[in-house]
Each structure stands twice: as structure tokens, then as C-alpha cells.
Design a protein around this nucleic acid. Structure first.
Lengths: 221, 221
DNA sequence: TAGATTGTTAATCGATTAACAATC
DNA sequence: TAGATTGTTAATCGATTAACAATC
């Protein structure tokens, strides 16, 4: 019933690409076409389809509109989910801006900061509140996802406020590893680690296994 | 000889935590302590140590200074690597700012944009050049890593310029999946996919397997 | 039909964890 | 010593890929 994390990530990527195809007037797509656009293999696409229980229009590939719908029915919540961004530095602004104008079932309904320069203003189309109002507003606005883009020293305390006030998922962009209660889904991304990883493989290899295999996968198709 | 990607990522995380411990005057650390700080298991720490060929001071845990040095000798390049950020929007500024003041072997030596408001100015301590100068400056400044934070429509062409001019590693923050020649290491991160993944597990589970298992791992130690 | 494409099982690969002998 | 900790092998888990029968 529950899909593997990696599959869910790919579904999200498929959808974006499919929307793009749709806007160009394409109606159907073969597994190897969708694979090529993602630089993955066709088997992987087909296996993901299988896992989500979706099948193709016999002989014509997958119906793009239907597939977009099927992915949406798995990932999206009918009424949408409310999201808060905690910390309105450059990163927080970037995240908020990414959602701007996107027809998404994820609504950034508030941002939070301590800086009086920002509090009360509208950043990227979303009102910025003082962090002191977090507990109250999390409940009032029925926020179920929090995005942490605060300086490291605030990460833990903010995460605690989030989980204490009904947030069910956290995307942690700080460099501080968090530990969540079982009922909260935690996704962490560490930019520094990412670039140090790139540095390692640049240093120790001419490219590294990953990019190597990715490239060959794609060229095989 | 070459370490698994996951191990490399963890080494980067260990190092940051170890530097923190060191600054607090701590000299040695047990595997379970380091594990707890990362919310992973002690076995995983010890296996990573084994893979990097590092051993502990018998009975006193790992020597923090030595371990930091050992991680550095694997990840860092003695003379450092030069990095360019392509696209100085909020995200580009955030990335650049993250490195500001960090004593790192990775030097962001230039940023690039098309906006005449930004070109010629110093952003986050780094000079911004016009994208037209990319080919010339990539070579002149010996840039080996490129960070892509441009709007999606420019992603492919910028990536091509990077690889055509000696860049050996790319960190792609755009939503466009890239395909690299074998000798270029590619790391991609897609913020939208990340948050849609969180949304999926918030919707379909009270937390999801990942956060669940992470929490239990940590509490076991 | 022959060829292209799919859905699915089994095999493989990679990463984590359990188990445990060795050390102090 | 007894207990804590380590390093390493083997087992397990999870994700990708190879193989292939079925469909049109």
C-alpha cells in the first residue's frame, strides 16, 4: 500500500515532466520516452507504474492526463496541505518563491522570522509573522508541514515547536540533524554535505560511479 | 579505494559535528556518542570508520582531532577546489552565503548572472560576472565545480558550458534533470520533489517508515 | 506476422544491521 | 576480572536491473 520513498520521489519528477509534455499537446508517452526525459531506465519507469497500480493504454504508451491524475491522487491531498516556512533568509525566500504561482496542492500560508525588518511584510507573496506567534498560528492555520530554514542554533527549538503544535512533516534545511517523534515524517537536506560529496568524487575519480552509471543508463535507452 | 556515496555524505556530517565537539574542548568520542549526535546507529559509524581505514584510540574512543584530519585528507584537496555559482537569485545567494566565513577547502570564487543589476556587484562576498564571461572565466579561475541555481530554461545550456570548460562536478539545484558525460560527477537536488515526498508521507502515514526507523535507531543507543 | 512494448518475476547490487570474537 | 567498546563477517533489507512471457 505504501510506496517506497524513491518511487515517490520519481513520481513527483514524472509528474512535472508529464505536465510539460501535456502543455506541448502530447497525449501519450512510452516508458522509454519518460525514462529518457528523466535520465533513468525504462524498466524503472515501468516498475514504478506497476507499484502504483497504473497501466498503459495498450500499444500507445501511458495516457499522460490519466497518469498525471493518478500521481496526483497518490501524492496530493484533495483539500491541499498548509505549509509554513520558518526562517526568511535567502534560503527561506528561495523556497517560498519556488512555490509562487505554482498550481500546487501545497500552500505556503505563512512565513516566520524574528527580524523586525521582515515581520509584518509580505515575502514572496506570503505574510511574515514573528516567531513568537508560531504556536498559535500553526494551530489556527492548520499547518501540517514545516520547512526549516533557520540558522543552526534555532533548529532544534523550532522543530520542537512545530511538532508540539500539530505539524506532521518537516523538511529540515539546517545543518543540524534532528530527531523526531515517530508520527512526524522528517526529510533532511544538507547543502554543505552535498557539495562536499561532489568535491570528494571530483577529487577521487573523474566523475564517480554515480554520474558514470547514470550516463550509461540513459545512453542505453 | 573509493568510498560509497552514503559513507562520504556521512563523513561530511561527522566532521561538522566533530569540529563542534572539538571547539567545546572534547578530545575523544565513542562510536555511540557520534552516532547519537547524528541520529544514526553506532555500527554504522564504526563501519564507516572501517571503510575509511580509521581506528580508535584503544578504549578511549576516536581521537577527534585525528579523525577530523583523516576525513579532511579524504574529502579535501590540499590546495582547495574553486567553485562557481551560476544564477544569483535567492537560492544562489543562499548557497554563496552558506560558505561565507567557513574555513573550507571549497572556495566560491565567482558568481554569474544575466541581470545587469547584479553583474559587477559583490554578492555574499563574491563578485558577480555576466554569464557571457563564463567560458573564459571558468578556465582562467580554474573552476572545477559548478553550482546551478538558474531558472529551468537555462539549466541545460549552462551545464553544457560548464562541462565544455573544464568543470568536473556539478550540483544541480534546478528542476531540470541533466545528463552528464562520464567524467563529470553530477549531484541533483530537487526541492519540490522533496516537499512532495514529505506531503505524501504526511498524507499516507503518520510519519512514514523513515522517520519511524530513525527514531527507534536513535533511542536504541 | 514481426516488432515494439509492457508487466512481472527472479537475480543482482548496494547499503544497513545483527552477531560476535577480540581488546583493554 | 567483568564490562564496555571495537572491528569485521555474515545476514538482511531494500532498490535496481535482467530476463522474459504476454500483448497487440
Amino acid at each position: 500500500m505504501i510506496l517506497p520513498e524513491k518511487t515517490v520521489s520519481r513520481l513527483s519528477e514524472y509528474r512535472r515532466i508529464l505536465l510539460d509534455c501535456l502543455s506541448k499537446g502530447q497525449t501519450h508517452i512510452f516508458s522509454h520516452e519518460l525514462a529518457n526525459l528523466n535520465h533513468i531506465t525504462a524498466v524503472q519507469v515501468r516498475r514504478d507504474m506497476m507499484l502504483m497500480g497504473f497501466s498503459s493504454m495498450q500499444r500507445k504508451g501511458y495516457d499522460i492526463k490519466e497518469l498525471i491524475g493518478a500521481i496526483g491522487s497518490l501524492i496530493d491531498t484533495p483539500d491541499g496541505l498548509n505549509v509554513a516556512v520558518i526562517g526568511v533568509g535567502n534560503f527561506g525566500k528561495a523556497v517560498t518563491g519556488y512555490f509562487r504561482g505554482k498550481r500546487s496542492k501545497l500552500n505556503i500560508v505563512a512565513t516566520f522570522d524574528v527580524d523586525s525588518e521582515k515581520v509584518g511584510r509580505v515575502v514572496g507573496g506570503v505574510k511574515c509573522y514573528h516567531v513568537d506567534n508560531l504556536p498559535k498560528l500553526l494551530k489556527k492555520l492548520k499547518i501540517s508541514i514545516g520547512i526549516l530554514t533557520v540558522p543552526p542554533e534555532y533548529a532544534r527549538s523550532m522543530a520542537e515547536i512545530l511538532t508540539d503544535n500539530g505539524v506532521k512533516g518537516i523538511l529540515n534545511f539546517t545543518t543540524v540533524p534532528l530527531n523526531m517523534p515517530d508520527h512526524v515524517f522528517l526529510e533532511e537536506y544538507d547543502m554543505i554535505t552535498s557539495i562536499e560529496k561532489v568535491a570528494y568524487f571530483v577529487k577521487n575519480h573523474g566523475g564517480g560511479k554515480k554520474s558514470f552509471s547514470k550516463a550509461t543508463d540513459a545512453s542505453k535507452q
